[in-house]
């Protein structure tokens, strides 16, 4: 890759705020990240962290709703936020496409799967219905649906959960997009089907070279598929970096909590799981200073009351690794050594 590799996607200080009766919900509040062509970014976070809202903001799906979106989203150098809707529509489903968590509700119940894929194709290509349907059948075959010629005429309810998600992927890839956004694509699926879908996404990425943003709460999925990770908490990134960096050198307390609260098949059984005290913060009145401070177990290691008063900035800890925390690097290193997750790094 050339030195001046242009970012495929650049999100800069993105804010998505929803006015409600109780006040302004700051679902996404100052999110910045970028993505290179052909790479996979995993966005992880718990419910309400703003990860799904982010993905919809990229496609401009909040347009026409009361949501207030500000900041900058540049796709291949084009600013998306103030792009006329006509031009944005040319990108949607063509250069940037999306797959959703629940393929049953994301597919129209009254149209055959083939028609829905064909529609995605015809919106961006002037071809006949028949040609588009042939293309749909081709795509179904590509994503591994047996008897594609027959199934292209079937309706979503006649598909199994895994087949539906395959069909969604076929629809998303029908125009050979440069960016695929997958919002919890395997959450509704069984683990063996999840494995099939993840393998399929990896295989198709190799073939199509699309960049992928995968949004998930499952760190295992991220470990499997992502090149880079972005950990979201209360509407912004608290840590981001290359997948190995974030998993083996996690650099702030929320990520520590996430990684060590997961029971692992490989780790010794019976010990207590680490937990994160408290519950997710209000997005209407987020905590002052560091948004994680009310739940942070390591606040005592920071001198003074910086955690409560000053929002920490995303600071580079390594070449490809940034975290949002007031802890001194030395203190972080000491905590990491104590945590069981880091033990596996030692073995490596």
């Amino acid at each position: 890759m050339s030195e001046q590799a242009r970012h495929l996607l650049e999100v800069d200080d993105l804010e998505v705020h929803f006015p409600t009766a109780d006040g302004l919900v700051r679902a996404v509040d100052g999110l910045t990240f970028s993505l290179e062509p052909g790479r996979t970014l995993g966005i992880v976070g718990e419910s309400g962290s703003g990860k799904s809202v982010t993905s919809q903001a990229i496609l401009g799906l909040h347009r026409g709703t009361p949501a207030k979106v500000s900041g900058r989203i540049r796709f291949d150098g084009v600013e998306l936020l103030d792009l006329p809707i006509k031009d944005l529509r040319r990108l949607r489903g063509n250069d940037i496409s999306m797959i959703f968590q629940d393929p049953l509700s994301a597919l129209h119940p009254y149209y055959s799967v083939g028609k829905q894929i064909a529609e995605a194709y015809r919106v961006h290509h002037s071809v006949s219905r028949r040609q588009a349907l042939a293309r749909a059948e081709e795509m179904l075959e590509l994503v591994g649906i047996p008897n594609a010629g027959r199934r292209v005429h079937e309706y979503p309810h006649q598909f199994s959960g895994g087949m539906r998600q395959r069909a969604m992927i076929a629809m998303a890839l029908v125009n050979d997009p440069r960016l695929l956004i997958a919002d919890e694509p395997t959450t509704a699926l069984d683990v063996t089907v999840q494995a099939q879908i993840l393998e399929l996404m990896k295989k198709l990425q190799r073939e199509f070279g699309s960049a992928i943003i995968i949004i998930t709460h499952d760190l295992g999925v991220v470990a499997d598929i992502a090149d880079d990770v972005l950990v979201m908490y209360a509407g912004h990134a608290v840590e981001q970096g290359a997948v190995n960096e974030v998993f083996y050198q996690p650099d702030m307390p929320y990520t520590w909590g996430l990684l060590s609260s997961m029971p692992r098949i490989g780790s010794p059984r019976g010990q207590r799981l680490a937990t994160i005290a408290g519950s997710p913060p209000s997005l209407i009145r987020p905590p002052s200073g560091c948004r994680f401070h009310p739940r942070c177990a390591y606040r005592g290691l920071v001198e003074g009351d910086a955690c409560v008063t000053t929002p920490p900035r995303l600071v580079a800890g390594g070449a490809d690794h940034r975290a949002r925390c007031h802890l001194e690097p030395g203190a972080r290193e000491r905590v990491r050594l104590q945590l069981s997750t880091i033990d596996s790094v030692g073995e490596r």
Binding site: Q56, L59, L61, I85, R89, R90, L91, R92, G93, N94, S97, M98, F100, D102, S105, A106, L107, H108, P109, E119, A120, V123, H124, M171
Partner: peptide, 21 residues
């Protein structure tokens, strides 16, 4: 509904989202 969001995400023009979907 989710499938309306899907239609918009495909780039379907708004009139078609309303009428067809």
């Amino acid at each position: 509904e989710d499938y309306i969001r899907t239609a918009r995400a495909k780039g379907v023009p708004e009139w078609a989202v309303i009428v067809r979907h």
